[in-house]
Design a protein around this nucleic acid. Sequence first.
DNA 1: TATGAATGAGTGTTCATTCAT
DNA 2: AATGAATGAACACTCATTCAT
Lengths: 221, 221, 221, 221
Amino acid sequence: MIGRKRIGPARDADLTRKKILAAAKVEFAMKGLGGARVDAIAARSKANKRMIYHYFGSKEQLFTTVLEEAYSDIRMAERDLELDTLPPETALKTLVRFTWDYYLDNPEFLTLVNSENLHKGRHLKNSATIQAVSRPFVAMVKGILARGVASGVFRPDIDPVQLNITIAAIGYYYLTNRFTGAIIFDRDFMDPKMLAERLNFNLDTILRLVAASPARSRGIR
Amino acid sequence: MIGRKRIGPARDADLTRKKILAAAKVEFAMKGLGGARVDAIAARSKANKRMIYHYFGSKEQLFTTVLEEAYSDIRMAERDLELDTLPPETALKTLVRFTWDYYLDNPEFLTLVNSENLHKGRHLKNSATIQAVSRPFVAMVKGILARGVASGVFRPDIDPVQLNITIAAIGYYYLTNRFTGAIIFDRDFMDPKMLAERLNFNLDTILRLVAASPARSRGIR
Amino acid sequence: MIGRKRIGPARDADLTRKKILAAAKVEFAMKGLGGARVDAIAARSKANKRMIYHYFGSKEQLFTTVLEEAYSDIRMAERDLELDTLPPETALKTLVRFTWDYYLDNPEFLTLVNSENLHKGRHLKNSATIQAVSRPFVAMVKGILARGVASGVFRPDIDPVQLNITIAAIGYYYLTNRFTGAIIFDRDFMDPKMLAERLNFNLDTILRLVAASPARSRGIR
Amino acid sequence: MIGRKRIGPARDADLTRKKILAAAKVEFAMKGLGGARVDAIAARSKANKRMIYHYFGSKEQLFTTVLEEAYSDIRMAERDLELDTLPPETALKTLVRFTWDYYLDNPEFLTLVNSENLHKGRHLKNSATIQAVSRPFVAMVKGILARGVASGVFRPDIDPVQLNITIAAIGYYYLTNRFTGAIIFDRDFMDPKMLAERLNFNLDTILRLVAASPARSRGIR
DNA sequence: TATGAATGAGTGTTCATTCAT
DNA sequence: AATGAATGAACACTCATTCAT
């Protein structure tokens, strides 16, 4: 109450916007786009439901904004890793580890992406934001690979897009499908020991995949 | 009413059930559990809406049944591969390829599993069916690995569960997230050429992962 | 309960439809399209709100149906006058009187038409019903005029459309604008005496308009 | 802040009021009282929404003010015709023509009046303004009639109120109901030729109505 | 076995109006 | 005088489910 004049908490437009966005992220992550309730978002954000429409126009536009922010966040965090400055192998390991940790710490991201894909990418298809934040990221991984090939530690002819997908896949799938996984494999996928094993397994998978080993992988088809 | 009882009608009941189940699978796959509409399922199956409740009790129970059937189907198809009878490396490659093809041919399976995980596995948690069909499958992969280790083509100390998850992950993730993928990577994920590349990439990934070092992965195909 | 089998009142689809339609006519007439409440229509018809959507699709489609019915009703009543069988002057007087009485007895018709015109005729623009019921009516008035001209009681060169509009106008305007009229002219527009005067005034207006009097109305411009 | 106080702002208040009133007239005319949106009025007037409440108290009071202004405007315009100074027949023709032109040029007036009548004249019932501006107008028409009767060109026993209503009716109805009219009669009611025909038809109607019989309505123009 | 009719509790969205500055 | 932020009540419309036959 002392020090910051003029902005009564209940009247701070930007704060309200942020609270709605945060609440919406949680709701959409928990229930999906279709299952999320605008009422619940309003209640969770302690904002009036009318404000949601004032700031975001509709449930779908709110969802779009949440998605864009989620992608921006992860891409910014990746950029902050400054992988360009690391040796290729370290950079790659860092990326695998980061991806895993990020998914673990931000599980909403996974469900949001799932939801968007259930809807065939409709909300992001024409999002300038997504395209803007994606390009540098794709370029960065490409750069790591190129440097690794140049220094002889990575084998050539690895498609950076496919590599990227695989790095995401092996973390993502394990975590989003941990519930059916638990049933099928009769294990607790969130047990710290199993989580640690998974990270190691993933690091192993990626390193063996890119390694410029004696493996004469010519003839692959 | 007199004379030709029980000959046609008895089969119709079963047919109705099957039509509902087929329609429900499509609807749930397209819209998720929350987004699917009982009316739409009734319309698509050309059955009366009341029949859905007659045969399945509720929308959620119908969803459970659809899921159980979906899992049974893929597990049966895997069993039919008779991987036990193949050399370990061939068996593994066959499994990777089969998994990929099955996902491609039965995309509903992916969305159904996604939906169930959004709901924290609630519908399958106590399903005897799932557990019954899963056990032999897990055992089979374990067997392949063991045989491969014994014959020296696979390295030891590979967790069959982790391997299994990875085989699924690298196909599953690519396909379910193909819409956001298309946006981020600016590629058509369903382009036949890219699909073929992905399968090869996945085969490569798995074989390098399990190969007894130094991996002599000649002859991958 | 005795005599009419099989149709429990609460389960008669056609009856429900009719009750909704009747209630909607009242509501729309009283409040206009925008002011009418679907809830109020449901309550008034003692039908479930859901049924309104089941039978009519939307508030606007319900409004369209109400309008079509209202127009069909008046056109049918006009047809039943069998004006073709009457001498032209009698036919015309009968029409003026009928129009006036119909407006008085069915005040909803006036407000419904007003509402539709506020919405620029959007709901009827492509209504086959309206066009089907209108054509015979327009033709009938044209026929009366023609017969009157032929027999020398009506002057020629009267546009039947303009005549029609005027017949409607002089009754319609008085009745729909009776509230502002009462304020401006400080009279009770619904007082029986004033109503009777108005009808006579209107009959006079129309008869003088069409009369083939010595009036040599050449040169009108 | 220092130096040029109070010069602009004092006039702005009045300007804001006027802008709101103008915007409200358009909105209410287009959508009716129920359909008009306070937000839309604020946007259209480029005034803050709060100002509407500051100056007018409520949406309904704003509507009342708009109506009062609309009536004042037409009554003032009629007064400016100075019909008392014209020969009775000319005065009457001038009035018919003026009424028609005014309705054509100020279509909002028609819809506003319609709206008010849908609401049973509730907003004007106790309006001193309306009564004040109406009295002279009614008296004026009465005067024209009296002069015409005295000079022998009009027949006696014509109720000036009924005449007044009819003059308004034949223009008003044609214009407000032009949309349903277009559908029923399959004509373009706003086509210049049809508009001209209608005006002539109306002049003819009124002149024949008041003419001292045998109506020598030569020279109608 | 099968069906069309009916319903209550929600669902996203809108609106006139007031608050705080 | 003027404004952007906020709200509660209501609105059109939907949905899974049950009733009556």
